[in-house]
Nucleic acid binder design. Structure first.
Lengths: 109, 109
DNA sequence: TTTTTACATAAGTATATACTTATATAATGA
DNA sequence: TCATTATATAAGTATATACTTATGTAAAAA
C-alpha cells in the first residue's frame, strides 16, 4: 500500500538527527567526519543513521581517498516529497560556512 | 530547535495507521467507529492513535450525542506541511463512499 | 613499517512504540 | 431501570529504536 511506503519514509525523516543530515546534504555533499563535527554526535551514531538512510536509498555514498562522501539520491522515488518537506525548513548553509571558516572543510576532486 | 519540532511531526505522521487517519480526516470529519470500520483495527488501537494526534494538536474532537467526531486542526503550526505531504498521496474518498453505500455513515447535526 | 585517521559494525542497554486484553464511563434505547 | 453502544484508558507485552562502548578495516602519513 502506498501509504505504508510514505509512512516509512516519514518515519525515516522523523528523527531530528537524520532530518538534519538530510538537510545538510541538501546543501552539499559531506563526508562522515564533517557531519560528526556539525552535529556534535559520536561517529558510530552518525554512521548508523547514514546506514539507515542509505539502506532506504535516500542517500548515496562515494569513496574518495580516506573519506566517504554522502549525497542525496535525486532519483529516489520520494525525492519530490522530501524537497517539499525541506521547503518548510530553514536552510543549513551556516554549518557549511562554519566548516569553511574553520578550515576543516574536506575538498576532494 | 525548529528541526526537532518538524522531526517530531514527521514521526507522528510516520506510522501508516496515523497517516491513514489523517488522510481520511482530510476528506471529512469522522467518528471513532467509522475509522475503526475503515481501518479494520481494534477500537483501543484507533483511540490511542487519535490521542497521540490530539495531544500534538493535529486533530480536534467534538462530542455529538454518543459519538466523538475528529477533525483536522487547520490552525496547526504545521498544517501547510501536512497538506504538502498529502499532495503526494492518493485521496481516500473511496472509504467514505463505501461507508455511505453500506449505510453506516454517521450523520449528525 | 608503524601510527594515525576515517569509517563501519557488532554487541549491549535503556527507552519508546504499537499493539493486546480488560475495564471504566457516558449516552442512548428498550 | 437495565442493556447496549461508543469511546477512553490502564496494564501488560513484544518489538523497534537510538544510543553507548569496543573493535575491525582500509587508506594515508610519519
Amino acid at each position: 500500500m502506498y501509504h505504508e511506503e510514505v509512512a516509512n519514509m516519514l518515519k525515516l525523516l522523523g528523527d531530528k538527527t537524520r532530518l538534519m543530515i538530510i538537510s545538510i546534504l541538501n546543501e552539499t555533499d559531506c563526508c562522515v567526519c564533517e557531519l560528526v563535527d556539525i552535529l556534535q554526535m559520536s561517529q558510530p551514531a552518525i554512521s548508523q543513521h547514514l546506514r539507515k538512510l542509505k539502506d532506504n536509498g535516500l542517500v548515496k555514498e562515494t569513496k574518495k581517498a580516506q573519506w566517504v562522501f554522502y549525497s542525496l539520491n535525486k532519483q529516489h522515488e520520494f525525492y519530490a516529497l522530501v524537497q517539499s518537506i525541506f521547503s518548510h525548513l530553514p536552510d543549513q548553509k551556516e554549518h557549511i560556512h562554519r566548516l569553511e571558516e574553520k578550515g576543516i572543510r574536506i575538498h576532494c576532486k
